[in-house]
Design a protein around this nucleic acid. Structure first.
Lengths: 137, 137
DNA sequence: ATTCTACATTATAATAGTTCTAAACTGTTG
DNA sequence: CAACAGTTTAGAACTATTATAATGTAGAAT
């Protein structure tokens, strides 16, 4: 509950009303040194640890989608039974450990830029995402 | 309904009993020149077009998972409300058109090999998959 | 400050994809 | 052919997510 004015400004400037639920979720998602990955379920757990006032599940979904739309979160393409989100919105790719079901960033310096030498007429590239699946050696 | 003995052998040799349901699904998935992408729902529709004896939804799921496990199908990592499968099990990447919700192969010759210059200790790379999201230009 | 209004939150219901269950069925082996 | 393990099946159950509609609230206008 340090300095929320930053989040309030951020929310307001992107056209989102700074409600106490959104501010709390900002604190949980963005008050850390390190970025991290989470599912909605993870986030709900973090929220209930962090506060006594519970936030409705619908609001959690709404907020995560709103933040994704505003570019504060990225969704990671992975086939899983649930969606994964990333607080690291800079360009980078992922390792996915199928044994531990663990998702890790790959430092962008460790991936050669992916060149796609073909295009689809009338379409432009929106993103290029690499998922490296790993397993026990 | 051409020559099923091929599928029967294939199934038997991978430890799957060649039931009429599995053979029918093999015909639908593998009797084509071109490989293709499908969801479970797509497959169910194809089946009901192709045969009068309906196959239970549970069997479709079971069979697709069995075929995936045996390496006859690949699942494509994409966040969608449903799972996408690919009868093309060779190495290649995908375009995903978010407007049309259309998934397309990228010819492997059109993608520079993706170099990952880092490793996770104790893990080996199982696959490297590139998903190129496109949108209306 | 009070009122107004559009935006947010909420509990709950609804939906959709997928998995589970347990009974009936069938391919294979002896 | 008998026996058994693997398979299919319908339907129930489960899970993640979205929709609904009533209530609440932030910010602007008065």
């Amino acid at each position: 509950m340090l300095n929320n004015s930053h989040y309030i400004d951020k929310l307001r400037s992107s056209g989102l009303r700074p409600t106490k639920q959104r501010i709390k979720i900002c604190e949980i998602l963005f008050n850390t040194e390190k970025t991290f990955h989470f599912t909605i379920n993870d986030l709900v757990k973090k929220i209930s640890k962090a506060t006594n006032d519970k936030i409705s599940l619908a609001t959690v979904y709404n907020t995560v989608h709103a933040f994704k739309k505003k570019g504060y979160l990225k969704e990671i393409p992975i086939n899983s039974d649930q969606s994964y989100f990333d607080t690291n919105t800079s360009h980078h790719h992922h390792f996915y450990d199928e044994n531990q079901k663990d998702l890790m960033d790959i430092d962008d310096a460790d991936v050669e830029p992916v060149k796609i030498n073909t295009r689809i007429p009338g379409k432009k590239i929106k993103s290029v995402e690499v998922l490296v699946k790993v397993e026990d050696a």
